[in-house]
Simulated assay, not measured.
Amino acid sequence: MSLHKWSIHGHPTLSDPKLKVGNGLILYFVVDDLNLIWEKAKKLNVKIEEELHLNSNSGRREFSVRDIDDYYVSICTDK
């Protein structure tokens, strides 16, 4: 668990406590083969919130999508 204050570190779901469902929560999944998961996500035509990039705060490569309930989900490497 990683707790943050509202509007800190530029997290899109932590910008305003009055926003829609899922606001204030980011689910992170750590995977072994990020490139494979990235390609699968693009083929599934999911709503991509952030393209594959290096997160300067964590030092990990990641991308973020919305799940079917509109929750923000980030998929990242373990290193």
Rank of each mutant, 00 (worst) to 15 (best):
N23P: 03
P17L: 02
V65I: 14
D67K: 00
G10F: 02
K79G: 10
V21R: 15
A41E: 00
G24W: 01
N23G: 08
D69H: 07
D70C: 09
L44R: 07
D69P: 07
L34A: 01
A41Y: 02
L52G: 04
L14S: 13
I37D: 03
K5Q: 15
L25W: 07
G59H: 00
S2P: 13
D16W: 01
R60Q: 07
D33L: 08
D69S: 12
I68G: 08
I68M: 11
L27K: 10
D32M: 06
K42A: 04
I26C: 12
D32P: 06
D32I: 06
G10A: 01
G10S: 04
S15D: 09
L19I: 06
K79N: 13
L52H: 07
I26Y: 00
C76L: 08
R60I: 04
H4S: 12
C76T: 11
I8M: 14
S15C: 07
V31L: 03
S64T: 10
M1C: 15
E50T: 14
S74R: 11
V31A: 01
S74A: 11
E51N: 15
Y72G: 02
Y71F: 09
R60N: 06
K20C: 10
E62F: 03
A41N: 04
N55G: 13
K79D: 13
